[in-house]
Computed example of a mutant assay.
Amino acid sequence: MYKENPESRIQNSEFRILKIFILLSIVGLLSLVFVLKSVAENPKKRFSETRLLMGTVVEVIVVGDNEKVARKSINDAFSAMERIDRLMSNFKEDSDISRINRGAGMEDVVVDGDVIEVIKKSIYYSEISDGAFDITIGGVEELYNFEDEGRIPEKNKFNNSVSLIGYKNIRINGNMVRLLKKGVKLDLGGIAKGYAIDKGIEAIKKNGVANALVNAGGDIRAIDEGENGQWKIGVLHPRENGKLKDTLILKDLSVATSGDYRKYFVSGGKRYHHILNPNTGLPTEGVQSVTIIAPLAVDSDALATAVFVLGKKRGMELIEKLKDVEGIIIDSDGLVIYSSGVKNYIHN
């Protein structure tokens, strides 16, 4: 599961899943440690379930008095998220994204409306970030093999794949998507999880539930105030394992973090992490982690990646331009930069 040698090290998906389950069994998922603690402090009933989905551990929590409604809400949330995963995973051969990729440079591909919506949202974030967020980076990510033990891409293949990166290679016509160049590959890993979380919350709300939280591997959206009047979410320190850097208070908000510590390998003494700069195809330097707070998880998910790639100066400038968005950036030296309004969400 966890493979290590002097030249290569990566935390692969199996190891990350195992690690999260161990944390669940001992002290609870770190990003939810305070949420779990609050159970004993209030008589409100809390119902939860955890499943493996989208390559990570997903937990759905519902707070209420009706167990039947709560259990149905949880199942409906998972069904909604599983549907998004089936549509948008590039690890499933029959997904819409895989079909789009196979047809690159050759044909228009008819896809589900949710796929159209996410691709349009992705293009929007590409535009406002000057290409720092770009879902056409899939071919380069594949070369690094981050999901296994990791590897340095072969030079010619790398250069060719980098030349194919560019969100302007995507054309949408009604319910059809075409990639204009053969070899272009989409990867929605920086946005689909957030979109799935939002769909899970929508499914919960349809059951009349107003107090819930969905956590997909640390990307979180909470509605209402939890069991004890507050959803408390811990932001992990990017270099000190198990240590919290900040604690956030969420109500009807989402939070997502992108970090260079989540998926990486080491070769020649250098860390190669999975947050790649679309302009170069290389791992982004200058930042250890970015945490974004926004109303919807699809936005916090995409922005966490975009801001990470932009770097602390341009990234914070983007955060400050956007309505109802706040952020925390930790740079490569460990310096923490807070957006102007984030103090309203930090628990002292």
Rank of each mutant, 00 (worst) to 15 (best):
S126L: 00
I20W: 04
A104G: 08
F133L: 13
H274T: 08
K68A: 15
N277Y: 10
R151C: 13
G190W: 03
Q288C: 04
S48M: 13
R46Q: 08
G268W: 04
E7D: 14
G334H: 06
A80M: 05
D148L: 13
Y261W: 11
L179Q: 04
V336M: 09
Q230D: 11
I152W: 05
E7G: 04
I170F: 08
P283A: 13
I10Y: 05
K120I: 00
L23R: 14
E14M: 09
I293K: 02
E285S: 14
I329W: 04
R221L: 02
I26A: 04
A297L: 00
K323T: 03
K120C: 04
K199N: 14
A212P: 07
Y261S: 14
E317P: 00
S79I: 01
R86E: 14
S25D: 12
M88Y: 01
F91I: 04
K3R: 13
D224L: 01
D187M: 06
V39F: 15
V162E: 04
G226V: 07
L29A: 10
G55I: 08
Y272M: 11
V63N: 03
S98E: 09
K185A: 11
I119N: 08
G150S: 10
L335D: 14
R9H: 14
G269E: 11
S267C: 11
E149S: 15
Q288F: 12
V309E: 05
S289K: 01
M81S: 07
V290Y: 08
A80G: 08
G286K: 11
K3N: 13
M54E: 12
Y124A: 10
V325K: 06
T280N: 10
V255K: 01
S89V: 07
V266A: 03
E227K: 06
G286M: 11
K168I: 02
I17G: 03
G105W: 07
N42E: 11
N169Y: 13
L36C: 04
F47Y: 15
S340Y: 00
W231F: 14
W231Y: 15
Y125I: 09
S79M: 07
G208T: 10
I119R: 07
V111Y: 09
E149K: 15
G268T: 07
V342T: 07
G217Q: 02
E285W: 02
V307G: 03
E14V: 09
R83P: 00
D96V: 09
H274F: 06
R239S: 13
I223R: 03
I204A: 03
G103F: 01
N160F: 09
N169L: 00
N241V: 06
S129L: 08
G311T: 11
N160H: 10
K206G: 02
D134S: 05
K182H: 12
G229P: 07
R151P: 02
E320V: 08
I61H: 10
N215E: 06
Y167F: 15
N215W: 05
D134C: 04
D76G: 06
V255M: 07
N279I: 01
F146P: 14
E147M: 13
L36H: 14
I135H: 02
T50G: 00
N228R: 08
S8Q: 12
I346L: 12
L282F: 12
D94E: 14
E285C: 02
D224A: 15
